[in-house]
Nucleic acid binder design. Sequence first.
DNA 1: GTTTTTAACTTACATTTCGTAACTTAGTTT
DNA 2: AAACTAAGTTACGAAATGTAAGTTAAAAAC
Lengths: 105, 105
Amino acid sequence: MDQKKICPRFEKALKILNHSWNTLLIYQLLEGPQRYSTIKNQVGISSRVLTERLKELEIENIVKRTVIPSTPVVIEYELTEKGHALAPVLKAMEQWSSTWVNIEE
Amino acid sequence: MDQKKICPRFEKALKILNHSWNTLLIYQLLEGPQRYSTIKNQVGISSRVLTERLKELEIENIVKRTVIPSTPVVIEYELTEKGHALAPVLKAMEQWSSTWVNIEE
DNA sequence: GTTTTTAACTTACATTTCGTAACTTAGTTT
DNA sequence: AAACTAAGTTACGAAATGTAAGTTAAAAAC
């Protein structure tokens, strides 16, 4: 009577993509490799949550973290191939929003 | 120095689509019009949150709510044109998940 | 050689959101 | 009158989130 016939891969994808901030972070990283502080300022996320999400996206192999041993140390984040493969999803969202979303009331 | 140059329409779209459950609910409703209890059982969401999200999606004109005056009363939910227009987004996610997401570890 | 500066985090804590389970409502059937 | 049903609603504890201050390490400034 009650079935979840939804594909487990798709469910997992939704879990990652719908976790708050993740889609916006990926969108931001589509611009190219960026440092922690840049992402933070551009996206307007708190450092507590940013660190958490970047770690999650790294574990999911969507984002790659690189340490640049300057002083002070700088960390660069960039999309992996798996991450770049999300571009069509973001493009579809952009397309939808430009056609259907309006901000006025 | 710190700019949010992200398009407000796109930001709003993300806000709606990334709100937990919403994408899954829209995915479920792509199957066709459905009653409250069907959605609840298929998706595995609590009634408290389901009611909240359906109300949100109705306000955003993504979902339409119809009262069927049977006994007991039945409510049918279906996607609007704006809601159906999200199909490409969901398809892109499905495509990505089938290529890149694996469940094993 | 002590203080300051900087990037990338951590931590503590208050606020908000979420999940669970029980309850409500209003028209039937029993 | 009591029971049943669909679609919610309510109360409340648990989990996630935002805010702001603190930490670390090395090197540049004083």
